[in-house]
């Protein structure tokens, strides 16, 4: 079971969180023209990297905040977690 450091609550077990997928996908701005390709890249297409992955989790049984987690998709090592508004590079 993963051990995830919620930036608001501290280290908690994975079963307090729910997963939210790729955290690098940015929703296109509202009311803006956008190509089919760009829209599909937002809705459907994913890099799904083997290795470092920035992803979203929600501390659903805790502070209910969405957070960003940088994790290795092979070893599950977590390198960094951050408030969802911050960027992880």
């Amino acid at each position: 079971m993963l051990h995830i450091k919620c930036p608001h609550c501290g280290l908690r077990s994975q079963n307090e969180f729910s997963y939210g997928g790729d955290g690098t996908i940015k929703r296109p701005e509202l009311n803006k023209e956008i190509s089919d390709q760009d829209w599909n890249n937002f809705v459907y297409n994913r890099k799904s990297p083997r290795g470092k992955h920035v992803e979203l989790w929600q501390h659903i049984s805790g502070c209910r905040q969405w957070i960003k987690v940088q994790r290795d998709t092979v070893t599950h090592e977590i390198f960094q977690t951050a408030d969802v508004k911050q960027d992880i590079k």
Partner: peptide, 10 residues
């Protein structure tokens, strides 16, 4: 329940 290339689970 989360992206994974590890052929091992929890």
């Amino acid at each position: 329940g989360y992206n994974s290339y590890a052929q091992r689970g929890n």
